[in-house]
């Protein structure tokens, strides 16, 4: 059951909502799909919403970090939204700080932040 994560396009922004627990294959597939989509659409911003995710281990964190760096190489800013308190605490205790990552409370906030960032 290899499910792909849907990537939606709204004007010049890609919106991704991760709805279920990520296994390694799905995570890597997602990384490829997102970069391909960025290339096709030349979107300037990406919002990845993690509201439904209840844990992130170092592997998933690394994939996310890589996606952000790769997107920025391709000229797109990424905002991560909806990280749950429990997830944030475990990440910090694991020693994963995800520095230089833009974050927002929810999708709406994330889109606002992205808009400000792109206008600047």
């Amino acid at each position: 059951m290899n499910v792909r994560i849907p990537i939606l396009k709204l004007r010049d922004t890609l919106i991704v909502s991760i709805q279920w627990e990520l296994d390694d294959q799905t995570a890597i597939q997602f990384q490829e799909d997102l970069l391909t989509k960025l290339h096709e659409t030349s979107a300037r911003g990406v919002v990845i919403d993690l509201t439904s995710i209840d844990f992130i281990d170092s592997f998933i964190a690394k994939v996310l970090g890589d996606v952000i760096s790769m997107s920025s190489l391709m000229g797109a800013r990424v905002v991560i939204t909806g990280i749950q308190p429990a997830v944030a605490i475990t990440l910090i205790e694991l020693g994963i700080r995800l520095e230089d990552v833009m974050t927002a409370l929810d999708l709406e906030n994330g889109l606002d932040k992205l808009q400000l960032e792109l206008e600047a």
């Binding site: 991560i80 990280i83 749950q84 910090i92 700080r97 974050t103 927002a104 994330g110």
Partner: peptide, 12 residues
């Protein structure tokens, strides 16, 4: 510092 880092992750 850890608390502030975690706050940053949730988006504040």
């Amino acid at each position: 510092i850890q608390a502030a880092d975690a706050v940053r992750l949730v988006g504040a």
